[in-house]
Design a protein around this nucleic acid. Structure first.
Lengths: 216, 216
DNA sequence: ATTCAGATTAGGTATTTTACCTAAAGCCCT
DNA sequence: AGGGCTTTAGGTAAAATACCTAATCTGAAT
């Protein structure tokens, strides 16, 4: 018997997952939390094997939650249902204490397989990561026209610089972070401004916000 | 009998919702889509009464999806399961063609009630909106890191400078416009930054946008 | 009425950032 | 193999910023 706990901020989703998992004979859903404090208490249940955790963002708060949960009950292995297939999310989850990830495209079969894999002491990462990277690629292919045209014309590196700059990094700090010269950072920003036909840094901030490069 | 369609990008969540809804005797889940194209085809089913749609963001793409769905089958009433209780999301959904919203804290009972309400020709907004607004208020109480009151502490002149600067005026141009020295403009900006405890011009732009001093 | 806080004004100086060049090396595509 | 783009980075002058000081002015409180 595999004892499973569920956490989803959305109560309905938790209930749905519970029904899904209870269809499997040797799965037993011990609890179904939708609040963090409630979860903190329930996760300490000694007979818990797997904790299925739905996460929607990679904020510090969320990542701290993962760490705290793994400390509260190291025997309960964490399976993350990620709602965002972004590279950022994958990287952060892989670095975290979680033992497995499922993307938003995962099937019921994969969910069950992932839980069994974790129960057997293995991690469940590679498949979903590959899938996510592939999906990202497909997403880009499928909807290239819906993105802001300006954003597409920027290179990865340029967006990287923009992201750091948007977090109030100075040119020097960006240079240190990326291990390049200050002049290069400056050059990147100039190239961006030229490409996007922006007249001022203010417009660059506006553009970045519009295109979700920086958060407001 | 109420004929229901489900759309959730996350396949598992769709399946979970399906199980939840099928527990109700007079609910019939006609389909459970997890891709946009698939959904576009299925939604045209003439016997469809309610389409339950999970959305995670308020991007143009998502909002367009709602419009397109309502055009493809005007008789199928849209119930949105919103994963974000932000004001932005509420406003955008209320403005959309959707007939109802449920927040992430909604219970199974509310989901069923919402579907019945929609089926009876009424909209299901008020309750969830009130709930969301309340939740937002609680969130703010819990995390008082947000400071929007800063605007009040600024003087007229300071806001004037900020407005011009937000229109991409250079310091010199602001000085000319206001018939003061460049140094004064600089001083104003410095005083503002000090007052608001902002570390960079990027943060100043964000503040200005938040407080409707400049337009995005 | 006088003090006092803060708003507005502006100068000094040093540092940082920008604007506008050039240019080499690498990569992808045809 | 060459053309175009990216990434890298240096040079120099101009602009903006940071961090000072400080003189008026205004409104509110004592």
């Amino acid at each position: 018997m595999i004892n499973i706990g569920i956490y989803d901020e959305h109560h309905l989703m938790g209930q749905g997952l519970k029904l899904l998992l209870e269809q499997v004979d040797d799965f037993d859903v011990l609890f179904c939390a939708d609040g963090k404090e409630q979860l903190m208490n329930l996760v300490q249940n000694k007979s818990l094997n797997i904790l299925v955790l739905t996460i929607h963002d990679t904020s510090v708060r969320t990542m701290n939650l993962i760490v705290r949960l793994s400390l509260l009950n190291p025997k309960a292995r964490l399976l993350i249902l990620a709602f965002d297939n972004s590279e950022d999310m994958i990287v952060k989850i892989v670095k975290s204490k979680a033992k497995g990830i499922l993307g938003r495209d995962a099937s019921q079969k994969e969910l069950i397989e992932a839980i069994r894999t974790l129960r057997n002491g293995f991690d469940y990462f590679n498949r979903s990561i590959n899938q996510m990277v592939l999906n990202q690629y497909i997403d880009k292919l499928e909807a290239p026209e819906e993105k802001t045209e300006g954003l597409n014309s920027l290179s990865e590196r340029q967006i990287e610089v923009l992201k750091l700059w948007g977090r109030s990094y100075s040119n020097q700090e960006i240079a240190d972070e990326l291990c390049i010269s200050v002049r290069t950072v400056d050059a990147h920003k100039n190239h961006i401004m030229q490409k996007l036909q922006l007249k001022s840094t203010v417009e660059l901030v506006k553009f970045s916000i519009k295109n979700n490069i920086i958060e407001i």
